[in-house]
Design a protein around this nucleic acid. Structure first.
Lengths: 145, 145
DNA sequence: TACACTATTTATAAAGATTATAAAATAAGA
DNA sequence: TCTTATTTTATAATCTTTATAAATAGTGTA
């Protein structure tokens, strides 16, 4: 199914008139297969072997292109660099404050919150984001030692 | 009441053994009176007149101190720099995607989400963050022109 | 009030992430 | 295959934030 997702993503690019380069192919593939939520630098390092001459700028440029097309979501947490997530179904993230691990968490969209916010503030709401913070089981058991 | 908040904040600092310097006083005062959610640079620029020799590092250092003491919350959105918010009661933020305006939005904490997340992932949840995005009335009316 | 001690500020530089630029390379359609 | 506009590369610049060390200034004590 990762296979199908990649194909669909490439089709999306084609439909939008975005050229499919080997670098773009590899970045998408990495994002889809990666169960983590990599930073631009993670991706750069991971593809160094396959593309020894690739520039960091290429990674950033393409992540921006993917974001604009809607294939990828950019996550900005407290730490230094953004993380990138291939867009599949709607889900939230649970983040470990000790080790930084990010786990997907499926939950119905909080439509009610958006409605109330719209009513109270007069904004036309487009979307929201939410993250949940805590300690993952691994770190919790280490703490207890 | 901004007056009272400032006094309480200063008391908090005193209790924690953090020295009250003119710069700290001014930064706190600015944060409390500011209805916006300023960046470190906003604060720096705003206090330039009063403290011509103040260093940017001072602003950053003190914002970190305030955050550690719990007086201030750091907000990291998509844009380049963090924003800082004087902590009062629990509330969320509604953010205009056109002009960047941030409006406070009071809503009961989403305890249920935290519970479910804890149950599903095994994390020990400490807190969550949520932001709501949309278009503010001003920008919406400009769009319609 | 003056002193001493330590925290804080300043000035500066360094680090890290991201973006801009221009020349070279290349994907995709004719 | 050929052409052209897009993309990549290499590099430098920008911006935010942190580190460092010397100078300064709060705060408790005599």
């Amino acid at each position: 199914m990762a296979h199908i997702e990649l194909k669909e993503a490439l089709d999306t690019l084609k439909d939008t008139g975005v050229r499919i380069t080997p670098q773009r192919h590899a970045i998408l593939e990495y994002l889809i297969n990666s169960m983590s939520h990599p930073t631009a630098d993670d991706i750069y390092k991971a593809l160094e072997g396959k593309f020894p001459n690739m520039s960091v700028a290429t990674v950033y440029n393409n992540l921006r292109v993917f974001r604009e097309v809607g294939l990828v979501k950019e996550l900005t947490y407290g730490d230094a660099s953004s993380r990138f997530d291939f867009v599949t179904t709607h889900h939230y993230h649970v983040i470990c404050e000790q080790c930084g691990k990010i786990v997907d968490f499926h939950y119905p969209g909080l439509d009610e919150v958006e409605h109330l916010a719209s009513h109270v503030t007069g904004f036309k709401i487009s979307h929201h984001r939410m993250e949940i913070y805590g300690t993952c089981p691994d770190c919790a058991s280490k703490e207890a030692h």
